[in-house]
Amino acid sequence: MEALNPENVLKFMNLVNNLKHSSRRGWSLINVENHEHIAGHMYAMGMMTFLLGDDSNLDRFKCLQLALVHDLAECIVGDITPQDNIPEDKKHAMEDEAMKEIASNLGEDIGKMIYNLYKEYEAKETPEAIFVKDLDRLDMLFTATHYEKRDNTPRKMQEFFDATEGKFKHPFIQKLVKALLEYRNKPHQLEGSVPNGIIKQ
């Protein structure tokens, strides 16, 4: 593997660290206080890749890698939402250029790997990319449910549930969504309580 330029690695780290302080704007647009940052969303998705059993046909490590790079471009372009009225093709072009800039700091080997992972996720054609997109949507619904419970604002986040209905592909994620919806419809529970059955495969 080629030697990396320390100055370029620091540039990469500086870009990535932006995500620890960058708001998930979808929540701010509906006035959710104390909401998550982009890095927190990516962390949650990464943790969920461990839910894959050893008997899964999916490559767990590949899923983890995809989860960690899927929103990486947002450290440069920010979290673009539909309310920004940016055409989808322009949004993808902006993110693609951002990923090329990010990858350019990491040399031919690592940079190309990260860029290719990003392109794999964007294409949504491999089983791993499809699964990670399921995780992306699941984390959004889980977080929406958390805010509804925390802030005692039942059904406030219904638009997110409507937007993802029928879009989940993986059977286990479908079970998780079903359990989450049942939990969402129950009376408020103490913070930190776990919906019954939500961690069982």
Rank of each mutant, 00 (worst) to 15 (best):
A93P: 02
I173N: 09
P127F: 04
P195C: 15
V194G: 05
E128G: 03
E33N: 11
G46V: 03
I198H: 05
F131E: 00
M113N: 12
D151L: 15
E88V: 03
G26E: 05
F61M: 12
A39W: 12
K62F: 12
K90P: 08
K124R: 01
G111P: 09
L58V: 12
A3N: 10
D59W: 06
L4G: 03
E36K: 11
P127Y: 03
K167V: 02
G53I: 12
Y121H: 15
Q174V: 15
F142I: 14
N5A: 06
M157K: 04
Q83F: 08
Q201A: 10
A93G: 07
E2C: 03
E74N: 15
V9Q: 03
L51N: 10
E128Y: 12
R24W: 03
P154M: 14
K91Y: 04
L138A: 02
L15M: 12
N116S: 13
F50R: 08
E125V: 00
H92F: 11
L15Q: 10
K11G: 05
T49Y: 06
L64R: 12
D55G: 10
Y147A: 07
Q65S: 15
Y115Q: 11
A44Q: 13
M99R: 04
C63D: 08
N18C: 07
L135G: 11
V32T: 10
I38G: 01
N34Y: 02
L64V: 06
A129F: 04
R137K: 07
T143N: 04
E7D: 10
I130W: 00
M1K: 07
K100F: 02
E122M: 14
D139Q: 04
E36L: 14
K149I: 04
G40M: 11
Q83W: 03
C75Q: 11
N14L: 08
N34V: 02
Q65W: 01
A98K: 08
P127N: 10
T164Y: 07
G26S: 04
H37F: 11
T81P: 03
K133P: 01
H21Q: 12
A163F: 05
D136E: 01
P195E: 12
A67S: 10
E36G: 13
M157Q: 09
D136V: 12
V9H: 03
E88H: 05
K133H: 09
H35W: 09
N85M: 09
S22M: 10
K149H: 08
K112T: 15
M1Y: 06
M47D: 06
D136S: 13
Q158L: 14
F142N: 05
H92Q: 15
L141K: 07
N196A: 15
N8F: 07
G111M: 06
D134T: 14
M1L: 09
I198C: 04
P87A: 07
A39I: 06
L15G: 01
I173K: 02
R150F: 11
D54S: 14
Q83N: 13
T164V: 10
